[in-house]
């Protein structure tokens, strides 16, 4: 491929890619469906919610930074197991993870999201948006919850979710890529594998377009997270420097 036309891939190759990426996803998804069921979708009680709400802003920010960082470590492991990712140059591996790891965390969030109650698994139980009030980012939190809800409404299978996560991570239009063409080829193959799975699962034609729309929503969520972090850091530079996880600081330039 010269980058303009999709690469030629055999059905067997697509099936293999689906298998590898689905396996990588299941091995690194942090919580298995069975584990989630055992958590019995238990919600925080009102006094527990209030305890989170009365935490100092910087304490709640630190807690969320820790939880995001834990989730990102699993995404890094997912990336490493995607066929072709480790063959990219180190610069591009770093560029893709810096730009895409939080996006994949947001994609994966639909697995731990209860649409009916508008709650997400956090710190041991299911939490509504009000739990995160102390962060002082109500608008961002509402958008993250809305995004998770809209992802849930697509009812993606684990295979579909795995391939969409890989597609998001291998975005060839990220700034500072050195071997853009190689990333592009890999992303095109993943897109073909995603289309293949959607067809095999007899999903309606519109699902792929709906997923494409999610890509821009994810970028918006991540740039808003960066803005909120900058605003927080301007007020609490020492907290970020001394109390935030080093990986979080590396990824988000804190």
């Amino acid at each position: 491929s010269n980058g303009d036309s999709p690469p030629t891939v055999s059905m067997a190759e697509l099936d293999h890619l689906v298998q590898i990426i689905s396996k990588s996803h299941l091995e690194t998804c942090q919580y298995l469906r069975e584990e989630l069921q055992q958590m019995s979708w238990q919600n925080f009680l009102q006094d527990e919610v209030e305890r989170y709400q009365s935490k100092p802003r910087e304490v709640m920010w630190q807690l969320c930074a820790v939880k995001i960082t834990e989730a990102i470590q699993y995404v890094v492991e997912f990336a490493k197991r995607i066929d072709g990712f480790m063959d990219l140059c180190q610069n591009d591996q770093i560029v893709l993870l810096k730009a895409g790891s939080l996006e994949v965390v947001f994609v994966r969030m639909c697995r731990v999201f209860d649409s009916q109650n508008n709650t997400v698994y956090f710190d041991g139980k299911f939490a509504g948006p009000d739990v995160f009030k102390a962060l002082g980012c109500d608008d961002l939190i509402t958008s993250v919850f809305d995004f998770a809800k809209s992802m849930c409404s697509l009812h993606l299978t684990e295979d579909e979710l795995a391939l969409f996560s890989a597609f998001v991570l291998l975005s060839a239009d990220r700034s500072w890529l050195q071997e853009k063409l190689q990333v592009e080829k890999l992303q095109q193959k993943i897109q073909l594998a995603l289309q293949h799975v959607l067809q095999k699962n007899q999903r309606e034609d519109g699902v792929l377009n709906k997923l494409r729309c999610k890509v821009s929503a994810l970028r918006s969520l991540c740039s808003r997270h960066t803005e909120k972090l900058s605003a927080f850091r301007a007020i609490y530079p020492d907290i970020v420097r001394t109390h935030f996880p080093p990986l979080y600081k590396e990824l988000f330039g804190a």
Partner: peptide, 20 residues
């Protein structure tokens, strides 16, 4: 490299938090 020390480590490690 220094700027992304931990990411480099995670990428190079064969054992990871996931395996542990």
């Amino acid at each position: 490299k220094e700027k992304h020390k931990i990411l480099h480590q995670l990428l190079q490690n064969s054992t990871s938090p996931v395996d542990l």
